[in-house]
Amino acid sequence: MRQQTGSEPSSQNLAFVMLNARPVDMDVADAESEGYYDPMSQTWIAPLHAQISSTYSTHRTAGGATSSDTTHRRDD
């Protein structure tokens, strides 16, 4: 798995769990063997990385990370 350690300017501040992260909007050239997570379709099927921005930003769960979150789009 691609790890983020050292791959971001702020990597020194990454929490431990964030070492599990995998980039989902890297250049297509970098994405040849990267992916996946779809199950219909909470998205990200690299290198179709255009999809993923909708998962984490534009298309945030209603309620987002607030205490009143009412829905769970991120719920697998």
């Binding site: 964030m18 993923i52 984490y56 991120r74």
Partner: peptide, 11 residues
């Protein structure tokens, strides 16, 4: 399930 920074999004 992930997070975003100005540098990109991560799962």
């Amino acid at each position: 399930a992930g997070y975003s920074t100005p540098n990109g999004s991560y799962f």
